[in-house]
Design a protein around this nucleic acid. Sequence first.
RNA 1: GCGGAUAUGGUGGAAUGGCAGACACGCUGGUCUUAGGAACCAGUGCGCAAGCUUGCAGGUUCAAGUCCUGUUAUCCGCACCA
Length: 799
Amino acid sequence: MKYDYKVIEKKWQDIWDEKQPFAAKNDYTKKKYYALVEFPYPSGAGLHVGHPRPYTALDIIARKRRMQGYNVLFPMGWDAFGLPTENYAIEHKMHPADVTRNNVARFKGQLKSLGLSFDWSREINTTDPAYYKWTQWIFLRLFRKGLAYKKDMNVNWCTHCKVVLANEEVIAGECERCHGEVVHKTKSQWMLKITDYADKLLDDLDTVDYVERVKLAERNWIGRSYGAEVDFDTTAGDKLRVFTTRADTLFGATYMVIAPEHPFVDKWKDKLKNYDALMDYRGMAARKSEFERAELVKEKTGVMLDGVKAVNPVTGKEMPIFVSDYVLVTYGTGAIMAVPAHDERDYEFAKTYNLPIIEVVAGGDISKEAYTDVSEGKMINSGFLNGLDVAEAKEKMAEYLRAHNIGDRTVKYKLRDWVFARQRYWGEPVPLVWCEHCGWQPVPESELPIKLPEVATYEPTDNGESPLATITEWVNTTCPKCGADAKRETDTMPQWAGSSWYFLRYCDPHNDNEMASREAMDYWMPVDWYNGGMEHATLHLLYSRFWAKFLYDEGLLSCPEPYLKRTAHGMILGEDGEKMSKSRGNVINPDDVVNEYGADTLRLYEMFIGDFEKSAPWSTNSVKGCKRFLDRFAVLDEMIVREKDEELERELHRTIKKVTSDIEDMKFNTAIAAMMSFMNSVYAKGGIDIESLKSFTIILCPFSPHICEEMWASIGGKGLCSLALWPVYDEEKIKVTEIEIAVQINSKVKFTLSLPAGCDEESAYDIIEKSGKLNQYIEGKTIVKKIYIKDRIFNIVIR
RNA sequence: GCGGAUAUGGUGGAAUGGCAGACACGCUGGUCUUAGGAACCAGUGCGCAAGCUUGCAGGUUCAAGUCCUGUUAUCCGCACCA
């Protein structure tokens, strides 16, 4: 057939549009399969060449499942709230909704041009009021359960975007998006208590099939550590509580450190002779950007509290208390007991300020460095702990603390609550009302969605208020409880909100009465296979698992984990091996590739480029190789022969087997290599029978669907190739009668020989001996050992 | 600093402990062409050879790219988390 990819691809895309072969059926009696890719943020830049990689991969899975008889849900939508759109709108004096509409249209066109088998009838958009109604609805449920709360807190403030950032959005002291400087600022913020779910989020990772590196990233991010809280008496009368994982070293505690923001500094104001100096230090620490704070790791600074001392509960000794920014107010209790002999940071600080260092675990050389090893070493200088190893000492100390009512075991997490508010326009309004008399009140469900009002200007304000705050007619309302004058919350939700539950909406996307019907969710959920970027392991993935778990606890969802399986694709780099970026000028535009080579080639190439999980550099030359393969495939219908060739049939079945299993293992590159090999054999034979060509067309179809539809039609296939039955290989047909094996002498290959398949050792040796090739190697030597691996190798060890 | 990953021809990459380099690119030569950045055919790890080859050094094994120990380099994540 003639392979005019532009004509063919348009033709089949139109047919798919019209016939809707990829629409998921609402027949809940069928076996289902839910394949999901992360929905994109429709940026102004259009589709990136990195997008088609995961999309094609799951498209292949989805297409194969359909061909295997599953009712497949493979949906797509738009995660369209967010700053770039808003900034673009401001810059070009447009409405963010219009910008979004344009970008979505562009993205959709691009995705359609790739022949992805999405069910477009279920398309969703997080900025659609019919969608964010339910985002707000879920938020209200969180609020009613006490999982949403407002708190004055030290937040990360991007000085450039003029917006509060979540901890997750701060990378090395810079804003994740604009790389602007991030400073600390105190603001009253809506928070979501994700920490309530820390244990479940961590423990349930054992129940799901995620690639290990994703699990690891989540585990590290949640950062559970077992330790103890210990109360230290102070000369001020208050008990200073610390968290430690090394209660065993309590005898070695020689001073205390509290965070500069610790409330005791204020509480003890009257007792502190150097209060001003402490305030200066606190101010200095706050002014430091995250970046400086991280950079200054090596130089520890601090100020000693003059006027209050602490007492070590086991030694009875008085100890000085310092403030230092190496102790974080946000972790543990914001205070530590310092054991310089066995903690590197404390050691460094103690050296700087000339504080005593007492060794309590023998085994290191504390004149040189802190000894932090917990696996060996016995307790010394530690009263009732002496002679124990560290693990035993921890146990015994925990008992002691409990018995004397000065502390107890506890668990702490690195994970912090989720800052769930942005002072920006283009997000879901937080559906709450502030009443002087009744406090924060949820908007009645009947009033949802609280829509974004039309405003003249979206510019962020310097005082950190949302632009919504300036629209008095929107802000002013009445209290849903008492009817008095009240004000709406003007903050909007962060971009992560809409994506935290979108996989549920796909189950039943046009439902006006519920986020999705229970029946639909029970059928489709959980997602069978979810693929996305590594960068979302600690953000989106954790957030959406949290929401799913919450909805499960609310009895609204039947599965405690939303995703059964999670894989992560590697990045596509520029031809220079560097990350693609405008500034480097190494960006490849997928539209150009589709234009020049066709979507089928782009798809095939992106799957052939290398290990799906690893990043790989773009290579225009290799794209041509894939195009060449399709060009050669396109004329197979002119090479049809009447007779089946036994060898070719064997290879076909071997190829079907390999492609079938490789797709499941995401080894798309070797699946394609196998198909290329098969086609090379067809060319070598000079022809192929029609049945074999049909099977070959079907297994290639998920990779390059347009050309396969065309081929299928050309060779008289019934219906759409995309819906043809996936071929089953016949193990009998794969069997061979003769296999070439390698004959080794002392583990070195000397020659190869053809043996009957499955032949036993004795007859194998017999044939080798009779071949006459062996004599020259073993003449005059003794055979010490013979190792025969069936169908593989025969190793003769001689002396 | 902690954690993770990776290292194979000129290039991207294949190899349940069993013939390293599948498949593809590139390159070389050829055929057909007025022409080739088209198509097709042949060759292609290195070395003149004996032989040598999976970052480096050891080890286990009849047999190691693969397992173990150490080491180097690169990339990624987290980063004063007590």
